[in-house]
Amino acid sequence: MRFQLRINERTARLHGCEVIASYSDNGVSASKEGVVRPGFERLIADLVRGCTDGGQRIAGVVCVADDRLYRRAEDLARFLAALTGSPGRIHLDQEGVRDPYSREGMMQAVRSLDAAVTETRVRSRRLTNWHWARAVEGVPHSGPRPFGWLEDRISLHPEEAELVARAIGERISGKAVRAIARSWCELGVTGTRGGRPNGQTVTQIMTAPRVCGYRANRGELLLDPETGVPVLGQWEPIVTPEAWQAVCATFSPGSLYMHRGSGAPRRTGSARPAPRHLGTGFLRCGAQGADGRVCRGAMCAQKGRSKRSPYVYSCGDCGRCSISGPLVDAALEQMLFGGRRQGALLSESSRHRWRSDEMPLEEKRGIVASALCHCVIHPGVKGEHAWDFSRVRPVWR
């Protein structure tokens, strides 16, 4: 980040400009759909307002390269609309000054987008091949440390491996996975990224092929092309292959790691239960970790503990953010009917059907999806019981 800032400061000086604010999204993908980029969102908001939080007027934007700003057509459209919202602004990069109001300036931005999309596809293919090559050699998985192993991803973590082995035995004997997750919580167990265990995460840990030493890639067990037997990883296994197969048999196929893990293809052909609440699928966790990064995990509906909140939306990734379900659903309705989009979404008859409960939930959710990408839910203040509408921040389409 600091190197790019220095380059931008040099570019600005060469053209008689000064950098008055910087925007960064380190470690946040600009090419994946549904990812919230706080720095980019702050830039768009400042451009629309015309000034920074400190009140300094914005005369343009300088960046090292276009792909640092956008890698999706939606982001390009939003950026150009915000930048050209006031006359006279410029767009600077190391190649010089661009006129974002001219046809040539817009075409140059589109060409940059095409190049960024092509580069993203090439990198994705290269990364996929790299992961496959590592997998067939039995190299441990990259990414966060898997639960049950030490940082080297080869040696077993004494306490965690014992928990996993015991949980697999208990599950095979008929114990409910939620009961196993509760017992882990009572012991103070946390995941490798700090989250509290729940039924889904415990299921994923127990049904991952790595627990018996097998190597998988993108939802498939890797087999030796000559012998046809599963490829063994270079790490120490926790249980035998027979125990892993037995615990997998206690779950429905759609719950297994092989169908829900990273990169795994989802099962099709089986009907999934329809969402029962308006906000399901539209909420993202806005809690910040110790490193300052925003969680952005999906928030799912769970049973609440009070009459006022018979259900709550909670983050299943970090476990640090929870909010009243009925109040959030009411906030979504308020944004659709009384916010800046008022009058642009529903006819008067549709509004009447919605408010009189004549409109089915599926149709309501379709309206929400047409207006919102998602909503970021910020954590509440401990001990504060008053409803704070600002906790729900919409990201409009």
Rank of each mutant, 00 (worst) to 15 (best):
Q56V: 12
Q56N: 09
R57K: 14
R57G: 10
A59H: 13
G60S: 00
V61P: 04
V61Y: 00
V61N: 00
V62P: 11
V62L: 01
V64P: 00
A65Y: 03
A65S: 14
D66L: 12
R68P: 02
R68G: 03
L69E: 06
Y70T: 10
R72V: 04
A73L: 07
A73E: 08
A73Y: 03
E74Q: 08
D75V: 05
D75S: 05
D75W: 06
D75R: 06
L76F: 07
A77T: 12
R78Y: 04
L80M: 11
A82D: 04
L83C: 10
T84E: 10
P87K: 03
P87E: 01
G88K: 12
L92I: 01
D93K: 02
Q94N: 13
E95H: 12
E95T: 13
V97P: 04
R98I: 00
P100H: 01
R103H: 13
E104P: 07
G105F: 13
M106N: 14
M107P: 10
M107V: 15
M107A: 15
A109V: 11
V110Y: 14
R111T: 15
R111A: 14
S112T: 08
S112C: 14
D114A: 14
A116Q: 10
T118M: 15
T118L: 15
T118P: 04
E119N: 14
E119P: 05
T120W: 00
R123A: 12
S124G: 15
T128C: 09
W130G: 09
H131R: 11
H131A: 10
W132G: 06
W132R: 15
A133M: 09
A133C: 03
R134P: 02
R134N: 13
R134E: 12
A135Y: 08
V136P: 15
E137Q: 13
P140Y: 12
H141N: 11
H141F: 07
S142W: 05
G143F: 08
R145Q: 09
P146S: 10
P146E: 03
W149F: 06
W149S: 08
E151P: 07
E151C: 05
D152F: 04
R153W: 06
S155K: 03
S155F: 02
S155P: 15
L156I: 02
H157S: 08
H157Q: 04
P158Y: 00
P158C: 02
E162C: 04
E162A: 10
V164G: 02
V164M: 04
R166A: 11
I168L: 02
G169D: 09
E170M: 03
I172H: 05
K175N: 04
R178W: 07
R178I: 05
A179V: 07
A179C: 06
I180M: 04
I180D: 00
A181N: 01
R182W: 07
W184Y: 09
C185D: 09
E186L: 13
G188F: 12
V189S: 09
V189W: 12
T190P: 02
T192K: 12
R193D: 07
G194C: 08
G195A: 13
G195R: 11
G195F: 11
R196F: 07
